[in-house]
Design a binder for these strands. Structure first.
Lengths: 165, 165
DNA sequence: AATGAATGGTTGACGTGTCATCAATAACGT
DNA sequence: ACGTTATTGATGACACGTCAACCATTCATT
């Protein structure tokens, strides 16, 4: 016999339920806002945002996927769609013919700059501003503990930063 | 002029990032475990679980959708797939010919009972057991605050429990 | 009883995410 | 130089969620 299964205590049940419901509702609300405000999906915004913070608004595809914790396939599919909408373009890479880069188009940049403040407001309204400073600290701490635990398990996709390091 | 956009402070940024990453990684890990252990998706487990806690392992479809915070359409599609796999069956309702009920099959029940302890273990391993009791309390509190805020916005789909209340 | 509105549930089309696979290219050992 | 292996990225098939359209039934009003 393996050890008796340990069910969740009431307190633990409460924590897990709270998390699941928060995740569901918060995600839905922020997505809804984003879409209503800017016509973007969560995924769209993530891509635009990551590119906006990248040097010269461009990034190699694999690196972008890694930074976003997305699969390459998912990113590739999504970029195809965003390219069709004129938000980004792919460009070949001179030094390595296998590589491609994505770049924000002018429209992509404009879209991002329009969307960002509204998105931030939504995040504030539905989450950030609901928490006391103490709760911020506590929450961030918890999140980081969990992320650290989960990142430890998955070996970090041998990042061969050629050149530096 | 609308007011100057308030960006997130570093602390707030940290909270938001922690949340997003935790959500991404934790969801992925728990899903992976569930699928590896029991061949079930998150959605599958949720349906089985809700039915398992229902009276006589059955539930009216709309009510189930409401309890799960799913759209009727989503549930209908998913039930079709689960029915094809033999986990649940639909049955008509005597008192109101519009209604249908879903019932766990014997196999569905067996699957749930097999999956549940493993799933609980996964949740413990990747989340619950990483938190101190104080963190549990803090986290649940935060989650509930957010859920309360978000539920307040959405008016609650007038539930008219007719017949067997 | 008859009409129209509301409710329960299904369906199809479409966009998206995952997985396995593939072509092209690079890196490496001989 | 050659062949082998790893890596980058794209693609097709499939599962899933959303949205709008759609029947069937029931309720409300007359």
């Amino acid at each position: 016999m393996t050890s008796e299964p340990r069910w969740l205590t009431d307190t633990e049940q409460r924590t897990w339920q709270a998390y699941r419901r928060m995740q569901l509702l918060l995600g839905a609300q922020v997505s809804r806002d984003l879409n209503a405000d800017s016509g973007l999906s969560d995924a769209d915004y993530d891509v635009l945002s990551h590119l906006g913070f990248s040097d010269r608004n461009r990034c190699q595809i694999s690196e972008l996927a890694d930074r976003m914790l997305w699969s390459r396939s998912r990113l590739s599919h999504h970029l195809t769609r965003m390219q069709q909408r004129g938000l980004v373009v792919r460009e070949g890479c001179a030094s390595d013919a296998r590589c491609s880069e994505v770049v924000l188009t002018a429209e992509g940049l404009r879209t991002l700059e329009e969307a960002a403040p509204l998105h931030v407001e939504s995040v504030r309204r539905n989450f950030i501003d609901l928490l006391t400073p103490e709760q911020h600290a506590a929450f961030a701490e918890i999140g980081e503990v969990v992320v650290r635990h989960l990142s430890a398990g998955a070996e970090p996709r041998a990042k061969k930063s050629r050149g530096a390091a």
